[in-house]
Each structure stands twice: as structure tokens, then as C-alpha cells.
Write a protein that binds this DNA or RNA. Structure first.
Length: 610
DNA sequence: GCCGTTTTCGGCCCGACTGTTTTCAGTCG
């Protein structure tokens, strides 16, 4: 585990334990915030912390003198004394208790101090005995809900990958649009912000008939449990497909798919209903992030206004909500006008993370799907792809790309039928021959060459020199420690033979953590050597991840967004790569796939590479 | 514990829903 991850984990635990002890909630929030900030940092805090550079640490938003001290203490001793002391007081199993939906810190504390419950097993015991009913505020219904939530978390609830959640959310929204009275329907939440995984699916509708919308929502075939159902919101647990292709093919046919088979993943889906005049304010509220919204509301208060999901209102400091008293909002119908009245440019959803977006003077021109004009990472049947060279070229041409690079695996990927040098030479001939058969798109010869554990490349220089494009990627030895991983990637970057560093960490979402190199150093090396860092657009990879893209973009490093095409459907993953790029504030200028053919081809031929 | 376009002290977003309650606490997003 990297130093940052270990620190974030400890601050998260400190926050949890303080909460369980009923300590000051703002101290809790401060530690939660510190954990979140540190988790998202691209660079390793180790060197700064070991040097005792408190001042540098305190420059980070949310890190003050006390937390800086704790970071230094951890870097030097490997421990945080406050963390150790709290652990001696609070049973470790209580954290698990708080992960049960509906069971928060107050209840966990009550169960612990009143009944001696210290973990989930203890909770189950008093549920079975029935003695839980004598705990204050514990009635039969609460216990029933608790049992359902226990069953839910025992199935192991992973966050749902973007590529599975988005097709499902589009299906739900499309259905809601057909319900009587519904004027608009869209998904919001972390899904709209393009996060790589999501905890639940948020659907917003504007409607004149909330009761009809709620009923249609609860009766959808995927719904297995209704959690909440009120006048303006409903929450359910629904089963969604875990085969991304199926949802697309399924369309709006409600009889097939996950709901019928019982497969798939169980996910919480929230429906929020608002009048159409509140659409913009509601979209902002429901899109988040929470941190972004808190900042917006604080900003509103400073301007003598108050912001909620119904609109931006003058702040008359009355205790009841302005909309309930018929006060007319200053802005509410569109997100643009709400931002404008707060003195802000429109902020794209993907960057609403309270990470500098409030300093923007105008809306940044972030990359869009249609900006992408080239695919530079694709496999054919020569290694582990399912398409021929011509089929691949045709697929790229259909998407109006001007260029596609054929980059099959190198020899060490024997399980993927990687090409030895002689086969690669033949393959390049075949690519050049295919070029003669298809017009309107440029075919480039290339390889996805393995970066071996020591950082050397899987082909000798003279082989790489023959190729138009070299994508270098780590595939094996993905459990390396951060230091050798950093050296490995930098050695590949500095080889002078590489155009693009492919899926730099090798992570697989929910399955494999991959490498944890010092990304700040990798980014600096890539910038210095004019190597582009890839955002692999496959939803199981999204590697670089958003925070790495953000750091790379700030450093002026070039980015490639590629689908790593193996089958025809893989081209459709591009939108996830673009969303990840947008989360990193990526502009088309900094993304080589957006460049005109001439500029891209000239860049690939740069002299430093062969 | 953090932070400053009122502030270095005194704040720190806002509303919906549920279940258990006789008016509200706890949880969630």
C-alpha cells in the first residue's frame, strides 16, 4: 500500500472512531476530508512528510497544522498515536456495523455501549434473541429493515463499474420519460459526473404527476425491494445486468435480461421528482458532488441567498424553506442560470468535485466524444483480437476516424498469442497491403509492446524502429512495490522508442489494484520525453484514472484516449475514456487522438524515436 | 480540526423520509 493510501485509511478510521465516541462532528468531517484529499493526490506524500515539511503539507486544502503533524508522525514512525489510542477504545467490528445501510454512528454507539454489541455477529445475536426490541427507538419495522440490509451487504456490495451502470441508467431514464406527466428524465449523481464506479444510480424526473412517476418506478421489473417511497423521492434496490452488451441489445424490452434471469448485480436506484421549473436546481443538487454542493451553498449564503434543490432564493432567514412559502426563486430552471446568478461560469458535471472549479472565469472547453479522430491501440486476430485488419479499419472508418493503429501484443504475451519479431514483420506487411484496399483512413503499423518487470521492452530497438506506433504497457509483475514500478515505467518512457504508455498502472476495477507508481515522477518523465500517457477507455480499466489525468493535464503532459479494441463493441467504450478525460480537465488540444491527421502523424514520427 | 471578499474566533448546507414518536431523532444523499 502506498503511503497516501495508508494515510487516507487511517484518517478515515480516525473519523469513524471519533464519530462512534460521539466527539465533535466537525472534527469528524475534517478527518474525512483529509482522507479524501490525500486519497486523490497524484504524488506520494512520503518524501515531503519524511522531511518534516509541514508547511508544504498545509498548503493542501483541508490539511491544517494538526493533521500535518499526524502525517509527519506517520511518515517517521509508521504510526499515528491518536489512531492507536482510539483503536484501544473502540472495538474494530463497529466499523462494519456502520456499513449497514440505515445504521449510523448514533445507533452503533447505542448498541455498543448499551448492549455490548461490538460486531455484526453480536448484532445478529440480539436480533435473533429479540432483545434488540428493548433498545430505545428500535421497533419491529426498524429491525425488519435491518435484516434486509444485513442480507444486502452480505452479498458483498461492490461499487458498480461505470460501463455497467450507465446503460442501466439510460434504460431507466428512457422508461420514465414515457410515464404520464413526465416532462424530463435523466440520470444524475456520480454517474453523470463520470466516476469510474458508482454506489447507486440517481434518476431525476420533472413531472406534473409525481404519484404516477413513483408508481411506475417502483413497478419496474428489475425492482426487488422498495426502500423509501415519498412524495418527491423513492429508492429501490434493483437488479441490473452485469453484461454490458445485453442492456444495449435489450433496448426497452422489459421481459428479458437480468430481471428475468436473476443474475446481475443488485444496486440502489434513487428517483427524485421535481416540478419542471426546478429542473436546473434539482439537476445540480442531484448531480453533486456533495463537496461541490456544500461549496455552492456556502457561496450562496455569502451572497445573501440560499440554494436548495428547488432553486436559488433570496435568503430571508426564515426557519421554513422559501419554496414552501411561495417565494419566487432568483434562478431554478437551468443549471446555467443558477451558476450565472452565483457569479460562476457553467461548470461541467465531470469537474464538480470542489477541486479548483470555483476559480474558473469561464467554462473550460473540455474534450468531447466527437473530438476523437483516431484510435491508436487495437488488436486483431493476429494476437487476441476478434477482427481482421480490414474489419478493424472499417470499424474505425465508420466512426469517422482518420487513423487507426494496429497494435497487437508482443512476444511475452504468449497467452494472448503475442507476435515474435518475424510474425510482426509479416503482420506489418499485411497492414500495408490492407491499406491499399481501403481508402479514407490511414492504417498505421504498431505494437502494444510489453514493459517487462525491469522496464526493458519486449522487442529489440531495431524491431521497434520499424513501427509507426509503439504503445508500451505493463501486463505482468503488477504486484511490484511502488519504487520499482516507478523505475520500470520511467525506463520505458526514457527508452526513446515509445509513443504512448498504455494503461500505466494495469489496474482492473474491483479486481486488481495494479501498480502504484509515483505518478508525479512518471508524468514528469513522460512530459520530458514527449510520450503520451494513455487513458485506456475500457470501463474495467479506465487507466489512467481521473486523478492521474488531472495531474498529467496540469503538468502539460500529452494524453491518448484509446479503446484497446479487441472486438467490434469495444469502440463503444470510448465515451467512458472521454468522461475520465473530462474529469481530469482534459482539452482536445492536449489529447493526441483529437489532432488532425497531419499533426498526429508528424508527432508519431518524431526524431527521438528511431 | 479547518478556515477567512464580514472573521485568527466562531462559524462550519439543506431537505426528504422513516419509524418511533406525542414533536422529533437518526440517516441519507
Amino acid at each position: 500500500m502506498s503511503m497516501n493510501a495508508a494515510l487516507a485509511e487511517r484518517f478515515g478510521q480516525i473519523a469513524e472512531m471519533l464519530e462512534l465516541l460521539g466527539m465533535d462532528k466537525f472534527k469528524v468531517i475534517a478527518h474525512q476530508k483529509a482522507a479524501r484529499i490525500i486519497e486523490a493526490l497524484p504524488n506520494d506524500l512520503g518524501p515531503i512528510a519524511k522531511a518534516g515539511d509541514k508547511k508544504a503539507l498545509m498548503e493542501l486544502d483541508g490539511i491544517g497544522p494538526k493533521i500535518a503533524d499526524k502525517i509527519v508522525e506517520f511518515a517517521v514512525t509508521g504510526k499515528i498515536s491518536e489512531h492507536e489510542e482510539l483503536r484501544a477504545q473502540v472495538p474494530a467490528g463497529l466499523a462494519q456495523l456502520m456499513k449497514i445501510p440505515g445504521l449510523g454512528p448514533k445507533t452503533a454507539r447505542l448498541l455498543w455501549q448499551d448492549r455490548g454489541v461490538t460486531d455484526i455477529a453480536g448484532l445478529k445475536k440480539i436480533i435473533d434473541e429479540g432483545s434488540i426490541l428493548t433498545v430505545p427507538r428500535m421497533g419491529a419495522k426498524t429491525v425488519e429493515n435491518m435484516k434486509a440490509s444485513l442480507a444486502f451487504i452480505e452479498k458483498g456490495q461492490e461499487r458498480l463499474p461505470l460501463g455497467l451502470a450507465m446503460p442501466a441508467a439510460e434504460l431507466f431514464a428512457a422508461r420514465m420519460l414515457k410515464v404520464k406527466g413526465v416532462k424530463k428524465a435523466a440520470f444524475a449523481g456520480s454517474l453523470r459526473r463520470g466516476k469510474d464506479t458508482i454506489g447507486d444510480i440517481d434518476i431525476l424526473v420533472s413531472t406534473t404527476d409525481p404519484a404516477a412517476a413513483a408508481e411506475a418506478f417502483r413497478k419496474m421489473p428489475e425492482v426487488e425491494q422498495v426502500l423509501v417511497s415519498g412524495e418527491s423521492k423513492s429508492s429501490v434496490r434493483a437488479r441490473v445486468s452485469t453484461s454490458s452488451r445485453m442492456v444495449k441489445e435489450e433496448g426497452d424490452d422489459e421481459t428479458k435480461g437480468a430481471a428475468a434471469t436473476g443474475g446481475g448485480a443488485l444496486v440502489q436506484v434513487d428517483l427524485k421528482m421535481v416540478p419542471d421549473a426546478s429542473w436546473g436546481a434539482a439537476m445540480m443538487y442531484f448531480t453533486g458532488s456533495k463537496e461541490h454542493n456544500v461549496s455552492l451553498r456556502e457561496r450562496a449564503l455569502k451572497q445573501k441567498m440560499t440554494l436548495n434543490e428547488y432553486g436559488l432564493f433570496p435568503n430571508d432567514k426564515e426557519p421554513t424553506s422559501p419554496q414552501s412559502r411561495g417565494i419566487k426563486p432568483v434562478a431554478s430552471a437551468t443549471e446555467e442560470e443558477v451558476y450565472a446568478k452565483l457569479g460562476l461560469p457553467y461548470i461541467p458535471p465531470e469537474i464538480r468535485e470542489d477541486r479548483g472549479e470555483f476559480d474558473l472565469k469561464e467554462t473550460p472547453r473540455l474534450i468531447e466524444l466527437d473530438d476523437i479522430k483516431a484510435e491508436l491501440h487495437a488488436h486483431t486476430v493476429a494476437s487476441d483480437g476478434s477482427m481482421s485488419i480490414l474489419e478493424l479499419a472499417q470499424g474505425a472508418k465508420t466512426r469517422a476516424f482518420h487513423t487507426i493503429a494496429i497494435t497487437d501484443h508482443s512476444k511475452s504475451q504468449f497467452q494472448a498469442n503475442g507476435l515474435k519479431a518475424d510474425r510482426l514483420a509479416e503482420h506489418c506487411k499485411a497492414i500495408r497491403a490492407a491499406q491499399k484496399e481501403i481508402k479514407g483512413i490511414t492504417l498505421l503499423t504498431g505494437s502494444e509492446v510489453d514493459i517487462l518487470a525491469d522496464g526493458s521492452l519486449d522487442y529489440p530497438d531495431e524491431v521497434l524502429d520499424q513501427l509507426d506506433v509503439v504503445v508500451a504497457s505493463p501486463h505482468a509483475a503488477l504486484f511490484q512495490k511502488p519504487e520499482p514500478a516507478t523505475a520500470r515505467l520511467i525506463k520505458a518512457i526514457e527508452s526513446g522508442k515509445v509513443n504512448i504508455l498504455g494503461h500505466p498502472t494495469g489496474r482492473l476495477i474491483n479486481r486488481r489494484a495494479g501498480l502504484s507508481p509515483d505518478m508525479e515522477k512518471v508524468i514528469a518523465a513522460a512530459k520530458a520525453n514527449d510520450v503520451a500517457l494513455e487513458i485506456n477507455a475500457h470501463w474495467m480499466r479506465l487507466d489512467l484514472r481521473d486523478t492521474h489525468v488531472y495531474a498529467a493535464v496540469k503538468a502539460g503532459c500529452l494524453i491518448a484516449i484509446d479503446c484497446d479494441v479487441h472486438t467490434a463493441d469495444d469502440f463503444d467504450n470510448l465515451r467512458y475514456g472521454v468522461l475520465t478525460g473530462r474529469r481530469g480537465w482534459l482539452t482536445p488540444e492536449q489529447c493526441i487522438n483529437c489532432w488532425p491527421a497531419k499533426r498526429l502523424h508528424a508527432w508519431l514520427k518524431k526524431e527521438s524515436r528511431g
